[in-house]
Simulated assay, not measured.
Amino acid sequence: MSSNDFYAIIPAGGVGTRLWPLSRRNRPKFLYDLLGSGQTLIQSTYERLARVCGEEHVVVSTGEAHVDSVREQLPSLREDGIFAEPVARDSTAAIALATAVLARRHGSRIVVGSFAADHVIRDNDAFAECVRQAAAAARHGYITTIGIAASRPSTAFGYIHQGHSLAGEIPDAPSARIVRSFVEKPDSSTAQAYLQTGEYRWNAGMFVMRADVLLDSLKQYQPDLFSAISAIADAWDQGEECRKQALRQHWYGLEKIAFDYAIAEPLSADGGVAVVPGGFGWDDIGDFNSLAALLPSYNRQNIKILGNQDDVVFLDSAGDIVAAQAGRTVALLGVDDMVVIDTPDALLVAPRARSQEVKNMVTKLSGLGRDAVL
């Protein structure tokens, strides 16, 4: 695809609480090589997007606490290619600020795409083709998402209800379809019903759009947020002190709201959102159970090990996912389908079936004042 007008934004936020105690506030999951591939999640994401639009067109939005780590892991990231947030204000603010600044630098009709830092994608060529079609639909004025083929009736993801084809309107995006609606995470019976219709895809939170379309939509649906983001963007490239002053004045009061709720859902009701089906092999490492599905089995008992295998010893155990500290032995006897994560200051033991609930334990620890381990 032509990359002259396309810019990729990598929102690298969130703590990944369901992967505690591996993922922490000061070192979240996107900074780890969880799959043993030789690259951290954000490094893989950056490399994938750089292949699409070039390194000079990739930027990262992340928390101030992670700036040094991001720069260390992405040494070729351009000097002005990082947007540091003093506090997290969810995806709408992160995407809108980066878009507004890029629009001021390169023109309001550039196309921007937002792709999370912690997703796993297997087929980079198929991914690039989906982005190309999404950018074509974006140039026609649609905010375009990439919908993932729902391979099972998952209750962990939101869904996209797709409608009629847009191929006649957008010849360069033959796979694009209109979005009828976005649907919240369903219960299992509803998810099963969605799969049977063939009209629903998983919502992976990937969005491609012209900068002016996004900012006009933000002004329409979130006018207060638009005003604050505009003020910060105006000051962003006017020097460090101007930028800091604008952030102090406007950022902390921004509403914390996800891009789906703020923009995509209301705009889809007005017929302004398109979807391009994504068939490139996608996974969101949302919890230890989903991580285990991506790791090779250590033995015939389907044991999954993070890190050094020599430190983990099993007897009459099966289906576990285990992480051990270097030099410290973890021994499991008669333990099946469990999560055992051992770190220097915290140990998690939980059934794999309750992996989604690890975030509840993080909430409990915070309530008990155990923030030092979070």
Rank of each mutant, 00 (worst) to 15 (best):
D172R: 06
Q162T: 13
S37F: 04
G63P: 07
A116I: 02
V339Y: 04
D310I: 12
S61V: 10
G281T: 04
T17C: 03
A292K: 02
P351R: 08
R201G: 09
S366G: 09
A12V: 08
A134M: 11
R122F: 14
F226L: 02
R109Y: 01
N308D: 15
A326W: 15
E64Y: 07
A126N: 12
T92I: 08
R210D: 10
Q192Y: 00
N289L: 14
R24V: 01
E47I: 04
S91F: 07
R24K: 08
A353S: 15
Q309K: 13
P21E: 09
S188D: 08
R152T: 12
I82N: 09
P153I: 06
I110T: 07
A211M: 05
Y194P: 08
A346K: 14
G279R: 02
A137P: 12
D371H: 11
A176N: 03
I10T: 09
G286Y: 00
F115A: 09
Q301M: 05
R177L: 11
Q245C: 09
T62S: 12
C130P: 06
K219L: 01
S188Y: 13
D336V: 03
K219R: 09
A149K: 15
D336T: 09
L97Y: 00
T197S: 14
A12R: 02
A372T: 08
